[in-house]
Amino acid sequence: MRSIELILDPDSDAAVRAAWDALTAADLPSLGRSGSNDPHVTLVAGDDVPVPDGFARPVPTSLRLGGVLLFPAGPGRSVLVRAVVVDPELAAFHQAVHRAAPGSVDTSHPEAWSPHVSFARRVRDADLPTALAALRTAPLPEVLQVGGVRHWDGATKTVTPLA
């Protein structure tokens, strides 16, 4: 799988990692358990997403967080995330990325995209109250600052900075 992602500035990155650490400290699943994860917001993803030459829009400088969301992750399990609010600037940039890097999965298309910051995959539904309590110990700022854009190639584990 390949993706184009917004990455966070150092302070926002540290805030998300603190949330990951809070989940780890509560002995729950956390993206912080893997040394290869970086906090990010996926713009497009798919098996054939190319490295684009550029984008027709400027990169957003900040991301406003919304509420906690759960995505299905199999029977009795969920992916735990915080929503990212799609404002006009983010929507326009996402559409520019979608045009510059075709080949994404349907859920990356502008009409289906649900931007988010992920905390944990496969959290048992029974552990969700504990996970939420852990996240409250490491509250995130209302707005995260963007540090850049990258292309990720999961097959080769290659990161290509884009902006």
Rank of each mutant, 00 (worst) to 15 (best):
R57Q: 15
P58F: 13
P58Y: 12
P60I: 14
T61Y: 05
S62Y: 08
L63A: 04
L63K: 01
R64H: 13
L65P: 03
L65M: 09
G66I: 05
G66H: 01
G66S: 09
G66T: 05
G66F: 06
G66P: 02
G67L: 00
V68D: 04
V68F: 11
L69K: 14
L69D: 15
L69G: 15
L69M: 15
L70S: 06
L70V: 05
F71H: 11
F71G: 11
P72G: 14
P72R: 11
A73I: 11
G74A: 08
P75F: 03
P75G: 14
P75Y: 01
P75H: 08
R77W: 04
R77Q: 13
R77T: 12
S78D: 04
S78L: 07
L80I: 12
V81K: 03
V81T: 14
V81M: 08
R82W: 09
R82Y: 13
A83L: 05
A83P: 09
V84L: 07
V84S: 07
V85L: 15
V85T: 15
V86M: 04
V86E: 10
V86C: 05
D87F: 06
D87Q: 08
D87V: 07
D87H: 08
D87C: 09
P88M: 10
P88V: 11
P88I: 10
L90D: 05
L90P: 02
L90T: 06
A91F: 03
A91W: 03
A92K: 06
A92I: 08
F93Q: 09
F93E: 09
F93D: 10
H94W: 03
H94V: 06
H94I: 04
H94L: 05
Q95F: 01
Q95Y: 03
A96R: 00
A96S: 02
A96W: 00
V97F: 01
V97D: 01
V97Y: 01
H98E: 10
H98Q: 02
H98G: 02
H98Y: 06
R99H: 08
R99P: 00
R99L: 10
A100I: 00
A100T: 00
